[in-house]
Design a protein around this nucleic acid. Structure first.
Length: 268
DNA sequence: TTCCAGGCGTATC
DNA sequence: GATACGCATGGA
């Protein structure tokens, strides 16, 4: 499926179905996209910043100040534009609840985020709420002028991270930095391990249990068969799927999870 | 004031 | 292996 875009001055103008900025950038998978006063979003992937806006609620998106090579080399993959979410939603819509969930937030796409940022962000997320997660990550990025690599955080201690006000999670961040830099965890190797081994590897980090590991795998390693069960998804399962997920989600459980997570939160 | 938030470590059985 | 409890912080 070819990507439909054109160059418009200094911008890229993208024609893209099954994509909405609110659904994708404010659905709890990424924590440092900010909605600006004019309904655009400003955020970053690694050290690349981006402002993206939607042209009047259409399926036209403007990537401001982005060259064609940067679009094709960075943002096309980040926004997962090679995946046909229309096809995935048709498949999911065999199931009545998933049909409603896909209808509620049909513009969700799974972002292909950085593995370290995703892992450390979801360590911060545990027993925490989304506004406060964003606050902690915002203070971290303000301190470093962008999201820090594990290498940049080499000398951090529980005390030096005090300004984050991340509570008991600071010691978990320190342990994650230590294991990644010490070679006990090779994030590139995790990418290609079988799902169970990948989970078990990440879970050797203090503060990384099944849920944080699955979120990191889904959002930071694009392991779309990982199915993170947080408090909301546990409600989804007991309310709608007491006997397990329907078979139409097989292999794409993580994508189904994101539609369902967003949907059940909207009902509260 | 109490409860809760995209959970997990630890103790205990 | 299951279950109970504490944990930093801050908003509701």
């Amino acid at each position: 499926m070819a990507i439909d875009y054109k160059i418009d001055g200094n911008d890229i103008l993208l024609h893209q179905s099954d994509f909405a900025l609110d659904d994708t950038l404010d659905c709890g998978q990424a924590f440092r996209w900010e909605k600006t006063a004019d309904n655009a979003y400003h955020g970053a992937f690694l050290n690349k910043q981006l402002t993206i806006s939607c042209e009047n609620g259409t399926d036209l998106f403007r990537l401001h100040g982005v060259s064609e090579s940067e679009f094709l080399g960075v943002w096309k993959d980040y926004f997962d534009l090679d995946t046909d979410y229309g096809e995935i939603k048709r498949r999911f819509s065999e199931d009545e609840t998933l049909a409603k969930a896909c209808g509620y937030a049909g513009g969700i796409r799974i972002l292909r985020q950085d593995s370290w940022e995703s892992l450390s962000s979801f360590i911060i997320s545990q027993n925490n709420n989304i506004p406060r997660i964003k606050g902690i990550i915002g203070r971290l990025c303000e301190h470093y002028g962008g999201y820090p690599s594990a290498e940049m955080m080499r000398d951090e201690t529980i005390d030096s991270l005090g300004y984050l006000r991340s509570g008991f999670r600071a010691k978990y961040l320190v342990d994650a930095v230590s294991k990644v830099l010490g070679g006990e965890i090779d994030l590139d190797a995790v990418r290609t391990l079988p799902l169970d081994e990948a989970r078990n590897t990440l879970m050797t980090i203090k503060g990384v249990g099944p849920k944080v590991a699955d979120c990191a795998l889904l959002f930071g390693f694009y392991r779309v068969d990982a199915f993170p069960k947080d408090v909301w998804v546990k409600r989804v399962m007991s309310q709608w799927y007491p006997n397990g997920l329907p078979s139409c989600t097989k292999g794409l459980e993580g994508i189904a999870q994101q539609y369902l997570f967003h949907y059940i939160r909207s009902l509260k």
